[in-house]
Amino acid sequence: MNSNRCQTNEVNKFISSTEKGPFTGRDNTLSFNKIGSRLNSPPILKDKIELKFLQHSEDLNQSRSYVNIRPRTLEDQSYKFEAPNLNDNETSWAKDFRYNFPKNVEPPIENQIANLNINNGLRTSQTDFPLGFYSQKNFNIASFPVVDHQIFKTTGLEHPINSHIDSLINAEFSELEASSLEEDVHTEEENSGTSLEDEETAMKGLASDIIEFCDNNSANKDVKERLNSSKFMGLMGSISDGSIVLKKDNGTERNLQKHVGFCFQNSGNWAGLEFHDVEDRIA
């Protein structure tokens, strides 16, 4: 804790704080708040994202769990960046940072214009700094590629959806869906081809059962006569004696949908009302 307070470098102070573990201790919280207040950051909120950050903060010290993102411009133009000091005890973060840092970093174009007009005398050659760091006196954090520690490679945190990957997934999904639909059509054709005769046999049996049941259970003669003269009982009689059979319609220009219906065995005409396909869509 005392060593933290003696640190003059904000970055090193932050690193040494994170190496102690998650911000659960009082000392760490205090030092973190101090840094936060200097950078004018909002007060710490105990929300879901922060809890996830704290939960994964130990992984940050054990492996390279952060990723580099593209340079971005910060609003705070006055804050000076200080590179991690070179020493043997430096953290894995500092080593990875130095190793991955691009050798020739071009600041954003607006900064280049600003430097041409204002800091022309202060700029020095980039080749003087082989490790990729600018000199401290004329470098501001606005043109520095920021290493974002809140983007983890772990699956527990939300990632922005990559549109390229998204399109690949969509293409694969469409392909699978098309093949699945094709299989369904083939299966349906096979089933309907083999089971049409079985279906007809079952229909004959059921029609006979219904006629027999109605004959035996009609309450009085009047009801029995009305029932026997109905279209339904007429159809049941025709099915049971085989004068009406099942027929598969392979679709016409008018009715594209395949269907199975009743037809007269002698003439081949459809029995009952003509089948009209209704398109299955939401208006």
């Binding site: 279906e199 079952a202 229909m203 059921l206 029609a207 059962d209 219904i210 049941f213």
Partner: peptide
Amino acid sequence: MSQRLQSIKDHLVESA
């Protein structure tokens, strides 16, 4: 188709 007829028959039997 036969399933519909089966359900009609079942309904008749239940109603009786």
